[in-house]
């Protein structure tokens, strides 16, 4: 019976939305196919690279391993929501200033994980940076610049607190 499409309601980037889909859809498929949100990307498909990172109720998750049906009632934020009114989030700004990407495919994931890191640890230690960002992969090898961006953003956020 419930292999049939189901309808759920949730908040997506601040707006109440509704979607109807079969249960075997992943959250990333839902976001791309029904909401034209392409900032989260499926790469490894295994929870390891972080390219598909989105926030569910404030917690970063791999949307490639998250059933879309579990978004029911949740608040979902994607990278598209970070820049408001044309103003970049300080983390995004820090990534630009530190040159923290090459191809950019991994970047939205790193930006969102950095948000999560700085929410939990505004002034992170090297270990904390390692523990939060070790679940994201950058094949271009831009890690040194990413670490610099995290520290820049942390500095900028703690100063403006």
């Amino acid at each position: 019976m419930s292999a049939a499409p189901r309808t759920i309601r949730f908040t997506l980037n601040g707006s109440a939305v509704e979607a109807t889909f079969p249960p075997h859809l992943s959250l990333i498929e839902l976001l791309r196919e029904q909401f034209d949100l392409f900032g989260a990307r499926e790469s490894c498909g295994q929870g390891l690279c972080g390219c598909c990172t989105v926030l569910v109720d404030g917690n970063a998750v791999s949307s490639c391993l998250y059933l879309a049906a579990f978004a029911d009632g949740a608040e979902i934020l994607t990278v598209e929501h970070l820049a408001r009114d044309g103003r970049l989030d300080p983390v995004q700004q820090a990534f630009i200033e530190a040159g923290a990407f090459q191809c950019g495919f991994c970047t939205p994931g790193f930006v969102l994980m950095t948000k999560q890191l700085l929410d939990d640890h505004p002034d992170p230690t090297d270990d904390q940076i390692g523990h939060y960002l070790s679940g994201n992969l950058c094949r271009c090898g831009t890690y040194p610049e990413i670490i610099a961006a995290v520290l820049d953003a942390s500095h900028c956020l703690t100063v403006s607190l």
Partner: peptide
């Protein structure tokens, strides 16, 4: 050091 933050969140 178990999996990663995103997996542990779920």
């Amino acid at each position: 050091t178990h999996s990663n933050v995103r997996v542990r969140n779920v």
